[in-house]
């Protein structure tokens, strides 16, 4: 069976949005969930916050680690996160992309080229346009694209930019994104 993944890009207002999207996910998921969030968290942080809201393993992605289904990964702060052809993570400290490191575009572009049809790209609230190019790449290579309804988003810049670049993306509310993920593969 093909490996599958969900990539999520989120910026300002992201923690609260992710709490809804990741709430009580079905545990027998055959998807890996990989997240870039632009916040300057100090250490432990994210994995702790999200470890409590479902039974997934929630961790920071390590260099050359295998991407496993049923696991939620966060890009480490200050590193770009990419997916390699052999379904492993790689990290990079090269210059910021869209003023961001980690960058949503870097993750989405690399994941799109590896997972192709078996990828879901999701863009949530954010105050810049990182993710616009990456989501387009996901769409071009056959992946599904979802964007948080900008009317509901804490900051609508990122969702609006994403919608502009991917015309056929699904624009829905956070609670519906949660439901969508839970119903994947049914």
């Amino acid at each position: 069976m093909n490996k599958k993944a969900i990539v999520i890009g989120v910026s300002a207002g992201g923690i609260e949005a992710l709490k809804i999207v990741l709430n009580k996910l079905r545990i027998n998921m055959d998807y890996a969930i990989i997240i870039v969030i632009h916040i300057n968290n100090k250490g432990r942080g994210l994995a702790n916050i999200f470890g409590d809201i479902n039974q997934f393993i929630v961790k920071e992605a390590c260099d050359k680690e295998n991407v496993s289904e049923g696991t939620i990964y966060f890009a480490p702060p200050n590193y770009h996160l990419s997916i390699e052809e052999d379904y492993t993570f790689s990290l990079s400290i090269e210059e910021k992309v869209n003023y961001s490191r980690p960058s949503v575009d870097v993750l989405f572009n690399s994941a799109a080229e590896v997972y192709m049809d078996d990828l879901v790209g999701i863009i949530l609230t954010g105050a810049n346009s990182d993710g616009e190019i990456g989501l387009k790449r996901v769409s071009e290579l056959g992946g599904k694209c979802i964007v948080q309804d900008p009317k509901e988003a804490f900051f609508d810049t990122m969702p609006l930019a994403a919608i502009k670049s991917v015309e056929n993306c699904k624009v829905i509310k956070l609670s519906e994104i949660n439901k969508f993920i839970n119903e994947l593969g049914d």
Partner: peptide, 9 residues
């Protein structure tokens, strides 16, 4: 070298 890195550059 890692492919994604080479490709991006």
């Amino acid at each position: 070298y890692t492919k994604s890195h080479l490709k991006r550059r």
